[in-house]
Structures are given as C-alpha cells and as structure tokens.
C-alpha cells in the first residue's frame, strides 16, 4: 500500500490529539496500517503541538521535512511555520482564524498578514484549502469542534486511504457521546468547505 504522510500542527488545547486519534481509529477500522507520533509535554502550556501520522506500509512514525503529502494547520501562523514539512506536491489545509501567540502582545514578534500568508503557502505547495474553521465549529454548535471541522476537510481531499464513511463512523463511536452530533455536523461543514475551496 502506498504510504501517505499527514502532519497536523496546532496550538495546545485545540484538540489535535483527538483529531489524530480519530484518524488512527478510522485506519484501524479500515484495515489500513497506521503509525503516528506526537510531541506532548508542554502542550497544555500554550506551545505548539505537532502530530505526524503515517498511513500505509512504513515503519517510521515521524515525517521528515519536505515529506508530508498533506499538511493541516489548526492556526494560520502555525501552518506557515510548518511549511518546511511540505513540498511542491503537498496539499495544505489551514484554519484562517488566528490565535496570536503571547509574544505578539508583549511586542516580541509581529503576526503575519493573513493574505500574504496564504499567498506564500500557495506558492510553495500544490493546493491550499483555507477557511475560517472556528466559524464553522460555532455553526456546528461548539467552538471546540474546530478539530472535527478540519478532519472533515482533510477527509474530503481523499489523499488519505480513508473513506468519509469510516471517519464518520469513528467520530460517532470514538468521540464523547454528548458531542457526537456536534462533531458530525462539524465534520460535514468542514467536508463541504473543502469542496468549495
């Protein structure tokens, strides 16, 4: 089976660990080999959290620079920061709702212009799918469902060897029951948003 490599970057608290867990469970359900690696630790202290997920026949659990097939950023400046993981064939999905790091507030950095950020990503990769995932999560019923919006969007690209049905089934069974409906709605909204981009 062809190897497909996915990088997810997020800010601690955005729920990317659950997103990667859902994708791994969907792979198990679909009999697709899956391995992933996460950097935990300081996630709860507002740092960057990066998950690497490798689908198909491979032993490695991490992804080198320039080798991601799909790059998903939960926060626009973090998507751009992770661009080193991409190459000219990579598809990039990014939330466009910024969470400026604290260093911006204390004058130790400037948050990038969102328009320029998108142009830069487009110029270096094959495709950028970018939209306000926070707005869609709110529309689905909970701002915390940003992760499921983005899972929906990345499923739509069909780059990973996972069917929309198997991912939805996993969202239904492996996320908290109280949030399952909101999560599924968020998934659908993200899926549709990716179709339009």
């Amino acid at each position: 089976m062809d190897t497909k490599r996915l990088i997810i970057v997020a800010v601690g608290g955005q729920g990317n660990l659950l997103a990667s867990r859902v994708l791994a469970e969907a792979a198990l359900l679909s009999d697709v080999p899956v391995r992933m690696s996460e950097i935990h630790g300081m996630a709860q202290r507002g740092g960057v959290v990066e998950s690497a997920i490798v689908f198909g026949d491979a032993e490695s659990t991490i992804i080198s620079d320039g080798e991601a097939d799909l790059l998903v950023g939960f926060e626009p400046s973090e998507t751009l920061r992770a661009i080193r993981k991409a190459n000219s064939k990579t598809v990039v999905i990014s939330n466009l709702s910024p969470l400026p790091p604290f260093t911006v507030a204390i004058g130790r950095g400037v948050y990038p212009d969102l328009k320029q950020l998108q142009e830069l990503i487009r110029s270096k990769t094959s495709k950028l799918i970018a939209f306000d995932a926070v707005a869609l999560a709110k529309q689905a019923g909970n701002v915390l469902a940003v992760n499921m919006v983005l899972v929906g969007a990345l499923t739509q690209t069909r780059i990973l060897p996972l069917s929309a049905e198997s991912v939805k089934e996993t969202v239904r069974t492996k996320t908290k029951k109280a949030f399952a409906d909101i999560n599924l709605k968020a998934f659908e909204l993200g899926f549709s948003a990716a179709e339009c981009c």
Partner: peptide, 19 residues
C-alpha cells in the same frame, strides 16, 4: 533527496514558547 521548500521569503514568525 526531496526538494525542500524555499522559505527565504517567509517573514519571521512570532515565537510561541510554552508559557
């Protein structure tokens, strides 16, 4: 080796250290 993206035109991004 894979061609790494040229990031020379990416502006310096604000750091996000744990806090």
């Amino acid at each position: 080796p894979p061609l790494l993206p040229d990031i020379s035109d990416v502006p310096e991004l604000p750091q996000r250290p744990p806090n």
